[in-house]
Design a protein around this nucleic acid. Structure first.
Lengths: 192, 192, 192, 192
DNA sequence: CATGAATGAGAGTTCATTCAT
DNA sequence: GATGAATGAACTCTCATTCAT
């Protein structure tokens, strides 16, 4: 596949992402992608064999971009408490994007198969996030901003609340006020 | 519709429920239901026009039964703290049933349509649960078991954690230990 | 599948057989069958899952009918030589039907897969025919019509010639004269 | 078309031949050829317009090579009987190569169309072989090795047996023993 | 009430063939 | 000459839904 077709592949991924944002995963068809890309039926198969392959590429691109956005921010000299607050603000933004997020598609995709824990990338992301938050809480404890006896427990609690908000955004709906309130509650519970 | 028909309708609902537990909502077909019920294709249409009608009836039956189970338990003379603990144990049981629960199907069903807040039964259930928990925390405060300054905030926090655990059960998987740990963390945070 | 649909299944087999006679096996599509039967696309799948299933049913019906035709004839009191002559006349008829025979389709079907000898029905038919011919030659020897030192060898030779004629009918073409000549040659070679 | 192009064309033919040996004719696609040759899709069309053109070229090269192999052998001073024996040994070799032969592809190709007798190269080859064998039998009669009253009939019989063995090799399978037996039977029937 | 045969739309997929580069 | 991306027709198969019996 030449340079040119890599561009096209990326174009397809971008368009496909819009479709997944719109419709989730399970109800999306190859035809939907084809129409969104305005290419021929057969054309799509030059780049992807299955819908799941497209979706996984969408996710890969997504996570690459996510790193690009967040990583720079924390490289500066901020207190742990500030970084955690920043992290939660990022989460808030994404939670409120709801309609423009892949959350629903990701849920539907991951419902599908029994994914062995080892390959479960959602699980990896979750565990990674818990670790990062735990560090920040420990850091915050040392810096005097937090007073939390169980940093790991608190980190897990924070992540489950975020997951709860994420699924709620897709089902019962959430407002900015709701997210603010929950974040405030979480911060208070570990504040000094 | 005669008595007999009502029985048959209920029979279909019971069988359909098994299918939804097994496969979620979006991937279930009328054919799946027909085969699970071992009735004729046409026969199913005498009772239900659409798959969504079947699913909504499944949910209705589900919630009726849920009331039957939980209500009696709390009618006895227990402390608020005990009732809350009992409630959380019930949630735990359901969370760990995962494979045999309708969670996935409910998520997939509710992803589907923009549901006006008023008719959103998930939302109603959520709000109701928050209210109940809030009462229990207030009660617990008065009874000296809890010391919680923000009962409503705590109640909401508890519910979001539960939602987070519920979705995690369907995606990244959870163990009993995980649930125990989270419940313990929640109880500690409001304990006196 | 009720009585009625068995009739329909047979109807499909009859129509499908015409298609296979016309086009062989490998170039026939489900669509061809559907059109020949003037039924709907989906309708065909109520009766058959795959093209190969249809073809095997065609073959089954074919062999049943073949038995019906030939078996009665030989039950009468004929000499072995006459029965063999009759057998060869039957073969001749079929060889010359060429256009209206399934030969080509059978060849194409059997080219397809490595068929384990045990399940290879063509092989079974071939071996069975050799045995029958061998018996007839032995009988003819005893009855004084034949004088053949190697009945089995002769029987095999006869069958390979017939196979050679059958494939030739589909490729280079054969005339009635050709078949007559070959049969005569075979009979002479074992005649007393 | 320059020298280079001719080389490339021959390269394609050689590769295509391997494909036809492997898969027969009817199930081979342009894509198969392209992949076997490791050239571009468009590239193939510079040399051949249709699959049938490729196959006919494969056949042409095949028959050229066949002449090269067999012709020299018979130029030496051998008895007619020896030459016939040699011819049958050659046939045997090819029959047993089965998997590496074009037989199946040739059958499938020739099934396809009504080929006017004049252009039917299979027919020409068959008739030519019959003539050669007839000559050899007559020669053998004169040389005292054979005693055959109907050389033409015997020649035809031999060829139909060979055809029968060839098709059997592709359908019911044959062993070396089978071929040996049949050749022996044929030789005996014309031996002095 | 109940059946299940029948329909046709639509999904996934493959392939011969073309054409701008 | 040569490439390989692109097209669209054609094929297999499934499903919601209807309807005569």
């Amino acid at each position: 596949m030449g340079e040119k077709s890599i561009q096209k592949k990326n174009y397809i991924i971008v368009k496909a992402r819009e479709v997944f944002q719109e419709k989730g995963y399970l109800t999306v068809t190859m035809k939907d992608i084809v129409e969104a890309c305005e290419i021929s039926r057969g054309g799509l198969y030059l780049y992807f064999d299955k819908l799941s392959d497209i979706f996984m590429e969408v996710l890969r691109l997504e996570s690459e971009e996510a790193d690009d956005v967040f990583m720079p921010a924390i490289s500066e000299s901020m207190s742990s408490a500030d970084i955690l607050a920043l992290f939660l603000q990022e989460q808030k933004k994404e939670l409120l994007r709801s309609k423009n997020s892949l959350s629903r598609a990701i849920f539907e995709f991951n419902f599908q198969n029994e994914i062995p824990a080892k390959e479960n990338s959602l699980r990896k992301q979750f565990d990674m996030a818990v670790k990062v938050i735990e560090r920040l809480i420990i850091g915050g404890n040392e810096e005097g901003d937090f007073r939390c006896e169980d940093p790991r427990g608190a980190a897990r609690n924070i992540m489950y609340v975020i997951e709860g908000l994420r699924i709620s955004a897709q089902t019962i709906g959430i407002t900015e006020e709701t997210v603010n309130r929950e974040i405030l509650y979480l911060m208070k519970s570990i504040a000094a």
